[in-house]
Design a protein around this nucleic acid. Structure first.
Lengths: 337, 337
DNA sequence: ATGAAAGCGCTAACAT
DNA sequence: ATGTTAGCGCTTTCAT
C-alpha cells in the first residue's frame, strides 16, 4: 500500500506537505494542494489511521456500550449516536454486554486499548468500576439511559418516574385499582425509577396499599413468568405495567395463554415502543422514550466534552416520555372484581 | 498512560519481554512472566492497539457493512458475526448503508483507513466498486446475503429461490391461483431470486400466465403502497408474497386498511422473520432464514481466508430456509373468485 | 509556503 | 530465555 512518502515523492514535495493537504492544516499554495490531491487519487493512497492516531493522539473513535443491541430501543439510540458521530467524522465501535458486568468490563478494556476518545455507556449493573477504569485511562464518558449511584458524570436519560406515573394515572382514571408492575432488575435505575413512579401514582390516588411489584429481567421470558405469578395473586390485578417493551410483550403472551382477554379482562401498558415498521398492528399503550434523540443528545454532549467545549460540572439531560394510547387498555369491568 | 517501557523498567526487563508476555509469544521463564504480569496489573498498563497494529500489520479488526441495521434480520446476523469474531479476539466495526451505494463506498474507505483485515459485505447495489476497492487495498472480503453479478468472492446466503418456490407451492396447494409477489429493487439478487422462485412455482403448477410482480424497496412503506396497486388489479390476487419481513408487514397493514381480511380474503406469506421477543402474536407464515448462523458462517469463512487456511478458489455456503406455517394463510375461498 | 528531524508505542528481525 | 536495534506511517516541533 502506498504511504505519504510515495505520494510525496511522486508529487515532488515533502511528506509533511501531503499530511497538510489531507488534514487541511497549515499554509499550502493552491497549486501544490491540487497536485498532491491529484497524486493521491492517481496512486490510490489511503491514509493509515493507526499511524495518524499513534502520532496525533486523536483517533476519531467513540465506543458505544449497550446492554442489548437486539432491542430496537437501543438500535434506534445507536442510530442517533452514529448520525451525530458521523457528522463529526467519528467512527463508533458498538459493544453489546447482554446485561453482564463482566462483559462490560471486558469491552471497556478493549475500547481503552483501541484508544477511543470517548465512551457512551448504558451501564449493565450498579457498579462504577467501568466508569472509574475509563476515567483512569483518560477517556471521556457519558452515561446513557441508566443512573449509577454515586457517580458524577454527564448523563442522558428519559423521565422514567414521570412516565410510569402517567401510565398508572391513566389506568386509575379508567377505574383500575389493583395494578401490578413487572419490571427489570433491582440494581438498574430505569427499573427502580419506574417502580417509584408507579408507587407515587398509587399513593397519590389513595391506593398505596395495593402495591404489586415484581422484579425480574428486561426480557420477554421474565415478563411472561412474572405475569403468571401476578395472575395467581388474590385478588387478581386488573391492569399490568411492563417496564420495557420486551416485558410488555411477555405479559401479553402470558395473558393470552391464560385465556385472559386484553383489554377486556386485564389492561396492559408498557415502556419504550417498537418501531411501526415491525408491528402488524400497533397495539400496546406505552410511554414512548425518544431513543433516537437521546442517542443524538448524548453524543453531542460527549463530543463537546472531548473537545473541552463544556464547563467542568456535569450536564444532565432528561427527556420527557410521550404517552401513546392504543388498544391494550380499557375500563375496569365490574365483573373483574 | 503507561507504556511497555514503564512496565519494563519497573519489572527490570526489556520492553520486548513485556511484549512477549502480552502476546504469549517466544520463551519466557515462569518467574519473569509472573513478575511482568503483576507489574502490568500494578500500574494499570493497557496495550496500545494503534502501535501494535502499525508495527505488526495485524489489527484484529473486521468491518461489517449492512444495508439496514434496524432490520432484526441483520441485527441477528450481526450477533452471529460478533460472536465468532469475539471468540478469535477480533473487534467488529459496524457500518450501515441505508441501501445507498455512496454510503457503502464511503464506509469501505473508512474501513480501509482503519486497516481492517477483512470485511463482511451485504452489497447495497449491483456494482462491484466497493469489492474492487477493498481488494486493491489487500482486504479480504466475504459477500453476505446478496450476490453481485460478475464477482468471484466467498459468499454466504440463503436459498431465496427455493424459499419463494416453497411458499408459493404452499399457497397453490391451498387452492390459490392468483398470487402476487411484492419484492425489493431490481438490482438486488435476493429480490430477483425470490421472483425467480415464485415464477418457477407458478410455471410448474400451470399458472405461468398469472404472474403478478411488483418491484419496489425492502421497507414497509413500499410494501404498503404496492399492495394498494396489487389489490387494484383485476382480477384481484387471493394471496400475496412479501419478499422480506418489512414488506410483509406493509402488506398486512394495507390489507387491513382496505378492510380485506387476512387470511379470510387474502393470504399473506413473507420472508425472514421477526424474533419472537418482538411479536405479540406470531402471525405471518414465512420462509425463515437462519440469519444468526449465516453471520457465524460468513465470519468463520472470513477469518480462515485472512489466516490463509482456505484454498484459493471461492467458497459458497447456501443455507436452506425453513417454512414456518402460521395464521396468515388459509384456503382460497370460492367467493373470492 | 515548505521542509527536516524526531518520535508516538509497539514488535519483527536478529543477536546473545 | 532475554535483549538490541530499527522502523511501521504518520504528524509535532522547530526551522527556513
Amino acid at each position: 500500500m502506498p504511504t505519504v512518502h510515495d505520494v510525496a515523492k511522486r508529487a515532488g514535495v515533502a511528506p509533511i506537505t501531503v499530511s497538510r493537504v489531507i488534514n487541511n492544516s497549515g499554509y499550502i499554495s493552491e497549486a501544490t494542494r491540487e497536485r498532491v490531491k491529484a497524486t493521491i487519487k492517481e496512486i490510490g493512497y489511503v491514509p493509515n489511521t493507526l499511524a495518524r492516531g499513534l502520532r496525533s493522539k486523536r483517533t476519531n473513535t467513540l465506543g458505544l456500550i449497550v446492554t442489548d443491541i437486539t432491542n430496537p430501543y437501543f438500535t434506534l439510540m445507536a442510530r442517533g449516536v452514529e448520525d451525530v458521530a458521523g457528522d463529526s467524522n467519528y467512527t463508533v465501535i458498538y459493544c453489546n454486554t447482554d446485561e453482564s458486568e463482566t462483559k462490560e468490563e471486558k469491552y471497556a478494556n478493549i475500547l481503552a486499548q483501541r484508544q477511543v476518545e470517548g465512551v457512551l455507556l448504558v451501564p449493565a449493573g450498579g457498579n462504577d468500576r467501568t466508569i472509574k477504569f475509563l476515567e483512569a485511562n483518560g477517556i471521556s464518558v457519558v452515561i446513557l439511559d441508566r443512573r449509577v449511584s454515586g457517580v458524577e458524570k454527564d448523563f442522558v436519560c428519559s423521565d422514567s418516574k414521570n412516565g410510569a406515573n402517567l401510565l398508572v394515572k391513566l389506568l386509575i382514571k379508567l377505574g383500575h385499582e389493583r395494578i401490578a408492575i413487572i419490571t427489570g432488575p433491582k440494581n438498574v435505575s430505569t427499573s427502580t425509577d419506574r417502580v417509584a413512579g408507579y408507587r407515587r401514582a398509587l399513593k397519590e390516588s389513595g391506593y398505596g396499599k395495593n402495591e404489586l411489584i415484581y422484579y425480574g429481567a428486561f426480557n420477554q421470558q421474565s415478563g411472561y413468568e412474572l405475569t403468571q405469578q401476578a395472575m395467581n395473586h388474590t385478588p387478581r390485578p386488573t391492569a399490568i405495567l411492563g417496564a420495557n417493551n420486551f416485558i410488555a410483550i411477555g405479559i401479553t403472551k402470558a395473558l393470552h395463554d391464560l385465556s385472559v382477554d386484553v383489554p377486556g379482562d386485564v389492561s396492559v401498558v408498557g415502556f419504550d415502543d417498537l418501531p411501526e415498521s415491525m408491528l402488524v398492528r400497533p397495539f400496546l399503550t406505552v410511554a414512548r422514550q425518544p431513543a433516537y434523540d437521546m442517542g443524538r443528545s448524548a453524543t453531542e454532549l460527549l463530543l463537546k466534552r472531548i473537545s473541552g467545549d463544556l464547563p467542568e460540572d456535569c450536564q444532565e439531560v432528561i427527556f420527557q416520555t410521550e404517552i401513546v394510547e392504543r388498544e391494550s387498555v380499557g375500563p375496569r369491568k365490574s365483573s373483574s372484581l
